[in-house]
Simulated assay, not measured.
Amino acid sequence: MDHTTIDYGDYAEYDRRQRDIEHHLLAAFLGGLAVGFMGMFVAGDGPGWLGRLYEPYVYLALSLAVGATASGFGWALVTTFLAAMSTLVSAMGASALRGDDVLGVAGDAAGANRTLALLVCLGLAAYVTRRNDVWGDLAAAALGAALIADVAGRAVPGLVESDHSFWPYPAVVIGLLSVALVLGLRRNAWGRVRALALAAMLSGLFSAGLAGGPAGVLPLPV
């Protein structure tokens, strides 16, 4: 008579994976609430330079962190959307506590939809950077290039309707962090070289497309 051997280690691994997914969902939700709530007070009452660093870059950093740590592509989509929605809702709640126009936080419906789509796409790109091939290099380069082009759009006079107060300190900080992001997302020297080269090329293309556009390529209504 054959005896079936049950490997309880497989069940334990499955249970651990499910708990990790649950914790990641909860962290994305709570992180979005905290970032959105604090952002309204930082932008309204904090120093000007802090507000320029917080919005939109802390919101973007949250999406990148959530997407890069997801358990799969589908979970990256779900958790990034959850974090973005909780950020928007908490920002509206904080605006109500301050006595401001709640609907003005999110802008019009089209603007809110664009913001959600942008944050979700950034989270998905962050998940793709976990690949050890050229697609991972390209995703890391695209993220860095978008941030660098946004800094250029906000800081460089004549490129677009720039914010002169964004230069030099906020622009330098975000620019250096963008380069560090590209380097940190790759796992080997050759991948970092390729990602930096692609980021330089893409940021030039993105910046060239900013002429006549709104200040920054990553405008967020929150």
Rank of each mutant, 00 (worst) to 15 (best):
S86F: 01
G67M: 08
L26T: 12
L198P: 00
L138H: 02
A140E: 00
G36Y: 05
V89S: 06
V151L: 05
P157F: 04
Y127K: 08
S71Y: 03
A70D: 07
R98I: 10
A126N: 01
A200E: 05
R17K: 13
A200D: 04
P56W: 01
V173G: 02
E13K: 09
A27L: 14
H23F: 09
V35T: 08
Y11E: 15
A65V: 12
H23K: 15
G216E: 07
G67A: 06
L210K: 06
A112S: 08
L220Y: 02
R130Q: 13
L159S: 03
G209R: 10
A12R: 13
D150H: 12
W75M: 15
G144W: 04
S90G: 11
A211S: 15
A140V: 00
P56H: 05
G31V: 00
Y59C: 09
L97Q: 06
L77N: 05
S178Y: 02
L33G: 03
T115W: 13
A68N: 10
G204L: 06
M1A: 15
I174N: 01
A76L: 02
A140S: 10
Y11W: 14
V102D: 10
A145G: 04
R19K: 13
A68R: 14
L220A: 03
W190D: 12
L202H: 03
F37N: 00
Y14Q: 11
G74N: 10
V173C: 05
V217S: 14
H3V: 07
L202W: 06
L62Y: 07
L181G: 09
R131G: 03
G212C: 13
A83T: 05
M40A: 14
G31F: 00
V120H: 00
T79P: 04
G175Q: 04
L62V: 11
A145P: 00
V58E: 09
V182S: 01
R154Y: 03
G9I: 09
G153W: 03
M1D: 13
G144D: 02
L118W: 03
V179Q: 07
L143I: 09
S95N: 12
A180L: 14
P221L: 11
G213P: 00
G107Q: 01
L103K: 11
E161V: 12
L77F: 15
L196A: 07
V105H: 00
M85I: 14
R52H: 10
G212A: 11
A139Q: 00
Y54L: 11
A117M: 06
G72P: 05
A61I: 11
S207W: 00
L205W: 06
T129C: 15
G213Q: 08
T129V: 04
L177M: 12
R194W: 13
F41C: 06
P157W: 07
A197Q: 06
A61V: 13
V151N: 01
L64T: 10
V105Q: 04
W135M: 10
G9K: 09
S63D: 10
L60D: 08
A146S: 14
R187F: 07
A110R: 10
